[in-house]
Design a protein around this nucleic acid. Sequence first.
DNA 1: ATTAATACCATAATTTACAAGGTATAAATT
DNA 2: AATTTATACCTTGTAAATTATGGTATTAAT
Lengths: 107, 107
Amino acid sequence: MEVENAKAQMRKGILELCILSVLSKGDAYANDLITKLKEAKMIVVEGTLYPLLTRQKNLGLLSYRWEESPQGPPRKYYSLTDKGRTYLNELHRSWDELVETVNTLRN
Amino acid sequence: MEVENAKAQMRKGILELCILSVLSKGDAYANDLITKLKEAKMIVVEGTLYPLLTRQKNLGLLSYRWEESPQGPPRKYYSLTDKGRTYLNELHRSWDELVETVNTLRN
DNA sequence: ATTAATACCATAATTTACAAGGTATAAATT
DNA sequence: AATTTATACCTTGTAAATTATGGTATTAAT
């Protein structure tokens, strides 16, 4: 049980990196993101995702446009901005450093 | 600035793994840990470390003994228990999975 | 006796993810 | 025409964690 908690903790803070990574490969709306992240075993729920997307948009990392849905209300498609792309690169560097750090401590 | 925040976020939840990793190589007291983690570029502050050590001790992952200091008050040396060692192995597995997940999303 | 260095710990505030619930749109069903 | 179903976005309250801050205690040196 404790391990589950630890895994959840580890995932925190990496979500941002994962979301931007998915968007770097193509625009997506919320459900796309949830599906793709779940496929990669990175679990996210709506209540976590929506505020995060809004925050990234407010920071200028993302933009969005409305698009009709084949069924139901319109979808908000998010797109990585130039600023977001730059930021993602920095995140990737930080992530690599972190992996290196853990390896160092681990031996 | 935003990147710094993100880096801090990423570090969260990985601290536990790092602390146990350091202790797996030998007993240490709080300042030892801070020094060694800082050397590996994993920044920790006292206010984070002490509650974490206490929690891990309460979970039975760590034990401790008092030892005289050459200067100043006695030191609390923490030691990994058998349970802690088992737990650390599980954390390592979780960490490897997480690295794999991020790699998948990243391409 | 006072100061300085070391060390442990507790409390309050901020931040974050998550659970839960709410609102709205469009198509299909009755 | 009205209701149901599926989809989609969003908000609020709660629980958990880190961090900032400050406090207490011990030892040695001044």
